[in-house]
Design a protein around this nucleic acid. Structure first.
Length: 806
DNA sequence: ATAGGGTTAG
């Protein structure tokens, strides 16, 4: 092929037709000779030809001009195309159509619309309107496309089948599309007889599939059934429509009916199955793809890998990953990101954070999904130390990272940090959402920061989130943990949409405050309202029975749970039941339950036994339980403490000493989960927060008693504890209001009843701690044993005796 | 006379 300039000069230019021939010759030759990167050279050639035409003095007519405009538009040189449109002596619908299409393809709907508006109605035609409609349609601007369609009819133009394809596909983007709207778009297409045409019907099926109504799905199927012929897109659209409606069964039926399956359909089936949790079926389709040697693309891999991640199938996931590495990616490296992201999710999910991290570090262009995935990977494993640096270096302009981080911090016990993060979120101009509020409330609950929580509650209402269930449920729990049971109840009563979590929360609120009967009444109401209790609900109900001492009811609910709700009791349920029996002194029954359990009793069970034995001073069975515990978790601090407390209550100090020696020999260290007060010159009280412990409601009672006694001693416990260190330089420790009050109460509670606790923060309480513990002993009617470096102090009946351990 | 146009999915 000669270079265009020579080609051109050889031929006399008399008509548009010859120039067109040359234009096309040049373009077609290039199109044929190279498969990629033709864009630029075609454009150069086009410009050269254009220059020649101008230089030759030939004045292009409409015909040639339109071709030039079309070619410039197709090649993406919109400015040149636009200039030519403007230089044309008369406005021309054909030229404008090309230009509108060019702008629409470039995503510039505003300029496309401008060209559209600047074209007089007189010169417009149907195709011209169609260009604008499909432009809006492809951009997802459904309503605008429909508006253009209406103006088209108003201007007196006749829509054709292309018009309907555009309008129908635009309709699918209308938000909250209903059946009536679908039919309003459908009817004109039927009248014109355009319906049986494949693209029109395809668009119709897609339209009805997007509509959230069962009837609409039937309509889609009707269109499908009435089609005289179908193409791959017809099948795909119908199948994907079923998947969207969660009708995987029908989707699969259609899939099996297809003779020739388009690639996308396979992927749609897999991702449909994954989306609805049918992982086995997803793998089955994937295996068939493999055996048929079908091409796998990035969509196949992401779907299958996410199935592995969701099902926690590390082995499967790794072999798919190996396959990608072995075969080399079958997809455009540019599309690798979603695959890499899902690999990070897979390995995080399977506790292989080092592998996840390696893939994450290898991603060049990390997107927000990559960052969020690795962040939640660490957070879900409770590795907040790894999560923090990720959070600090990632983009934080969306709510998601804050949500993940805050809820992670709360769950790992860093409630104060979560509250700080909430403030930082605002400083960084990210609007808190109901989920971040929920995390914040839960932090307030853990810290006992009632006033802070109240203020946030007010803010939440002001922001209009009050109807959010996640926030509302968190608020109930927050008030409950702070001891404000009436407020918790009020929030529950005014919540617009109460779900089973709300019920669980309010039942737990009453149960943990010692209002066992009220909790059980609420539970009965919940059942009457037709809500489905889950295993957690029953766990709470058993707790409630525990508090109210309702042994028979507890047993009844335990049976009810299995018989009427098919919930298989877990170890935690059994532990509550045994706790209930043990507390009631029914050690023999507890033994029977342990015998009849379908599994071996684990540590939680024996801990409950031990606690029961302590209350009823059953040394024999306590020793048995402790032996089990020592075997299962030999370095569990709490078991030793419980046992030595039992010995102490009998005054068996030698045994206490031998337990302590055992601890020393075995290297049992104090754990964050179980600590006690150390009396030296100062006292350490740990802020604890396990309101789920059956005894924890007593903290609030203790708090009151303690407050009254301390006031007599001259302390001011209402707003803050201002305590003086007698020993050293009369330092003052000013402790804030609620969290520290709870800290003291919970710390002493732990001391008194051996509740399982978590340390959040160290506090130093100075002054006459001895007296405070004495009051505790009197208030609870319990013996309290405290040890310091050399001695133990046994508080009993308002007196304190000391003894030596060794 | 001629030139400008379509649907869809993970």
């Amino acid at each position: 092929m000669l270079p265009p300039s020579i080609f051109f000069t050889r031929l006399p230019v008399h008509t548009d037709i010859i120039a067109i021939a040359i234009l096309y010759a040049g373009q077609l030759q290039l199109l044929a000779s190279s498969t990629s990167r033709l864009h630029h050279s075609v454009l150069l050639r086009l410009r050269a030809l254009h220059a020649h035409i101008l230089a030759s003095g030939f004045k292009p007519g409409n015909y040639l001009l339109n071709h030039l405009i079309h070619l410039y538009s197709k090649q993406g040189d919109i400015p040149s195309a636009h200039r030519l449109v403007q230089t044309a002596p008369l406005p021309d619908a054909v030229a404008r159509t090309s230009l509108i299409n060019a702008y629409s393809n470039a995503g510039d709907l505003y300029l496309a619309r401008k060209v559209f508006e600047e074209t007089p109605v007189l010169v417009r035609d149907t195709i011209f309107y169609n260009a604008m409609i499909s432009g809006y349609s492809r951009a997802g601007k459904g309503l605008l496309a429909v508006c253009v369609f209406r103006s088209m009819l108003r201007d007196g133009f006749h829509p054709d089948d292309y018009t309907f394809t555009g309008v129908l596909s635009a309709g699918a983007y209308v938000v909250d599309l209903d059946l009536i709207q679908c039919q309003q778009l459908h009817c004109p297409a039927v009248k014109l007889g355009a319906e049986p045409l494949v693209p029109v019907s395809n668009a119709l099926i897609a339209l009805y599939s997007k509509c959230d109504s069962w009837d609409a799905g039937m309509h889609a199927r009707q269109v499908f059934d009435n089609m005289p012929e179908r193409d791959e897109l017809t099948w795909t659209t119908m199948i994907v429509g079923y998947v969207r409606e969660s009708d995987i069964f029908s989707a699969r039926q259609l899939f099996d009916e297809m003779n020739e399956r388009f690639d996308v359909v396979w992927n749609s089936m897999i991702s449909g199955y994954v989306h609805h949790g049918h992982f086995t079926e997803a793998f089955e389709i994937f295996r068939r793809m493999l055996s048929l040697k079908l091409p796998l693309d990035e969509f196949t891999y992401t779907s299958v890998l996410s199935a592995c991640a969701n099902a926690g199938l590390f082995g499967h996931g790794r072999s798919v990953h190996a396959r990608i590495i072995r075969n080399g990616p079958d997809f455009d490296p540019k599309s690798a990101l979603p695959v890499e992201n899902v690999l990070v999710a897979l390995y995080s999910r399977c506790n292989k954070m080092d592998l996840a991290r390696r893939i994450f570090d290898g991603i060049q262009m990390k997107d927000s999904v990559s960052w969020n995935t690795i962040l939640s990977g660490y957070v879900n494993l409770g590795s907040m130390d790894d999560a923090r640096p990720i959070f600090e270096s990632m983009p934080r302009n969306s709510q998601l990272p804050w949500m993940v981080m805050m809820s992670g911090l709360v769950q790992s016990g860093f409630s104060e940090e979560a509250l700080k993060l909430f403030n930082r979120m605002r400083a960084e101009n990210v609007d808190p959402c109901d989920y971040t509020y929920a995390a914040t409330f839960s932090a307030c609950g853990d810290l006992g920061a009632l006033e802070h929580g109240r203020q946030l509650h007010g803010q939440l209402i002001a922001l209009g989130y009050e109807s959010s269930n996640s926030a509302g449920n968190a608020i109930i729990t927050m008030y409950a943990k702070c001891g404000a049971i009436e407020e918790a109840h009020f929030v529950f009563l005014v919540m617009p949409n109460v779900d089973f979590v709300s019920w669980n929360s309010i039942i737990a609120a009453f149960a943990h405050h010692g209002h066992g009967i009220e909790a059980i009444n609420l539970f009965d109401m919940m059942i009457k309202e037709g809500l489905h209790p889950d295993r957690l609900t029953f766990l709470t109900v058993l707790t409630a029975c525990n508090h109210a001492g309702l042994v028979d009811e507890g047993l009844r609910y335990f049976k009810f749970m299995q018989r009427d709700y098919g919930i298989i009791p877990g170890e935690d349920h059994y532990a509550r039941l045994i706790d209930l029996l043990g507390r009631a002194g029914k050690i023999e029954e507890a033994k029977d339950v342990i015998e009849e359990m379908p599994f071996e009793a684990g540590p939680t069970i024996w801990e409950s036994v031990l606690a029961g034995c302590r209350i009823h001073k059953n040394v024999e069975f306590a020793i048995h339980a402790a032996d089990k515990l020592f075997m299962m978790i030999p370095r569990h601090h709490g078991s030793y403490v419980l046992l030595s407390n039992i010995y102490a209550s009998f005054g068996r100090w030698e045994d206490v000493a031998s337990v302590r020696k055992l601890m020393k020999d075995r290297g049992v260290k104090k754990e964050p989960g179980c600590s006690w007060i150390e009396v030296e010159n100062t006292v350490h009280v740990f802020l604890v927060n396990d309101t789920s412990h059956p005894e924890s409601h007593r903290a609030y009672i203790f708090l009151e008693v303690l407050g009254a006694k301390m006031r007599k001693l001259g302390y001011v416990p209402d707003t803050s504890f201002v305590l003086q260190d007698v020993e050293s330089e009369r330092k003052e420790y000013v402790l804030s209001t609620h969290s520290e009050k709870l800290a003291v109460a919970f710390g002493l509670l732990k001391l008194a009843v051996g509740a399982k606790v978590r340390i959040l923060k160290n506090l130093r309480i100075c002054g006459d701690c001895h007296n405070a513990i004495m009051f505790m002993s009197l208030a609870t009617g319990r013996d309290i044993v405290v040890r310091d470096a050399k001695r133990f102090h046994h508080f009993k009946d308002g007196e304190c005796s000391c003894g030596n351990f060794w």
